[in-house]
Computed example of a mutant assay.
Amino acid sequence: MTQLAGADALVPLDPVFAQLAVGAGHNLWGLAHLTTREKAFVCLTADLCHPHLDLPLAMHVQMSLANGVEPESIRELYRHLAPYVGYPILVTAFQRLAELGLPEALDADPVEPVPLHGALAHAVRDLERVDPGLAAFTEDQLAQRWARPGLTVRERAIACLAVDVLYQTLGESLRLHAELARSAGATDETLRDLLRGMAEFGLPRVWAAAHALGLYPVIGRRA
């Protein structure tokens, strides 16, 4: 059974809220179409987007480690997310990881950009028509990340989809990351489970994302 590490710390804050929070956690961790690592990465991504770098981050780091996520994978997730959520918040996040006792980085090698292809290259070409300078910066940032070891493309895309949901970037960014996730093996059920799991981080955001992804049939409005 998945360990909801740190849940006992909520009881002194408010025992009823603690029960509700544990129920929400079991909703996410019980989903069948996301891997354990992906569920952990959704929580860790949400901590950056809100941001929640105190007790929630501590709980999610503890939970991730308890369920087999390697410390270096947590670091790689946060390296990947820097241009999506903003470099400044990652400075604070890495400080918090150190305070929480996460081991020092294993990878200190120079970053080697890898030329983009497929949907990522197409997105940069589209952006060139809007602003060539922005397109060049975007290409550089993407080329430094998407082919790195430590996380799969599907894991990276799911984390980016979590950012899209929480930031409500429900246009081109959402479509790009959904396409990347699908190209790496995600199915509609994977994306549905992602939204179901993210519901604990804000129902209205998830409702809007569900409509934007077109995963559900359109239901007629009541008169």
Rank of each mutant, 00 (worst) to 15 (best):
G197H: 07
H26K: 14
F41N: 01
V42G: 05
D193P: 03
R129Q: 11
Y167T: 12
F17C: 11
Q62T: 05
H52R: 09
H122S: 14
T35F: 15
R129C: 04
L44M: 07
A7N: 14
G197A: 11
A157K: 03
A5I: 03
A186P: 01
H33P: 02
N27K: 13
V130S: 14
A208Q: 14
T35E: 08
P71G: 07
D54I: 12
V165I: 10
G101K: 07
T187E: 12
L191V: 07
H122W: 14
T190A: 07
A105G: 14
A18K: 05
L100P: 09
L65M: 08
D14M: 08
L28V: 10
Q144Y: 04
L166G: 03
R75P: 08
G86Y: 11
V69L: 07
V22M: 13
E38R: 03
E99Y: 07
P71I: 03
I89T: 00
P83E: 04
C160F: 02
A159K: 01
D193C: 04
H211R: 15
L176M: 12
L151T: 02
G133S: 10
L213D: 10
A123G: 04
I219V: 15
A9T: 15
E139C: 02
R175N: 08
P115Y: 05
A162H: 02
Q3T: 13
P88Q: 13
L4P: 03
L194S: 11
W207V: 12
A159E: 02
D193K: 03
G118L: 11
V163H: 04
T138P: 01
D188A: 12
A143G: 09
L195G: 06
T92E: 07
R145P: 02
T138E: 05
P51E: 06
L127A: 08
A143D: 07
G30K: 09
G118E: 06
L53V: 06
A32T: 14
